[in-house]
Simulated assay, not measured.
Amino acid sequence: MEKAVRAYAEVLRLVRRLPKESRGYYAKYARENFVNYRDVDPSDSTTLNDLFNRTYNHSLWVLHKYSVDDSAANKLKRICCG
């Protein structure tokens, strides 16, 4: 649970780097996804690892879409993939 909260907080920090007009959409999108997966069994490490990897990869995709340097996601990478 703690890892998910840290990942969510970092995703919201990355959302702040996006253009102002798109921040609300991506903040809402992130919240909905984290809420949808809150009931995942913590003992199912394969599913959790997949979700964290998708979190990181999707964040990179969004950063690239808006030409934000993906090095901004290094902390998220450490949380999700490290």
Rank of each mutant, 00 (worst) to 15 (best):
A9M: 08
V5C: 00
A72M: 14
V62C: 02
V62M: 01
Y25G: 03
A7C: 03
R31K: 14
V15A: 11
K65M: 11
P42V: 08
R54D: 07
A7R: 01
S43V: 07
A73T: 02
T46A: 11
V15T: 06
S22K: 15
S45I: 08
N53M: 05
L14S: 06
C81P: 03
L48F: 02
C81L: 14
D39A: 12
K77T: 04
T46N: 11
M1E: 05
I79S: 03
E10H: 01
R17K: 15
E10L: 00
Y29M: 10
R54S: 05
T55Y: 04
R38H: 13
F52D: 00
V5N: 04
S45H: 12
G82L: 01
L76F: 03
F52E: 01
L48R: 13
R23K: 13
F52Q: 01
A27Q: 06
N49G: 03
N57G: 05
F52P: 01
R16V: 09
N33T: 06
T46G: 11
L63F: 01
L48T: 06
V15G: 01
K65D: 08
S22Y: 14
R54K: 08
H58A: 05
T55G: 06
Y26H: 11
K3S: 06
N57D: 11
Y56N: 00
N74A: 13
V15L: 07
D44A: 09
R13M: 07
R23C: 07
V15K: 07
N49R: 05
A30M: 06
Y26T: 04
R6Y: 09
P19V: 09
K3F: 00
A7D: 03
S22W: 09
R78G: 12
M1V: 05
A9W: 01
L63W: 02
Y26L: 12
S67V: 06
A27F: 06
R23Y: 08
G24K: 15
Y37N: 15
R38S: 15
P19R: 10
L48H: 02
R17Y: 08
S45L: 14
V62Y: 04
K77Q: 04
A4K: 04
A72P: 02
Y26R: 06
N36E: 15
L60Q: 05
D69V: 03
W61H: 14
L12P: 02
H64I: 05
N57M: 12
S67Q: 13
D39S: 09
N36W: 14
N49V: 04
Y66H: 10
C81S: 10
A30T: 12
K65P: 07
R38G: 08
K28D: 08
F52T: 00
T46S: 12
V40W: 00
A27N: 08
N57S: 14
K65H: 12
P42N: 07
A30H: 11
S67D: 14
G24V: 09
R54V: 07
C80D: 05
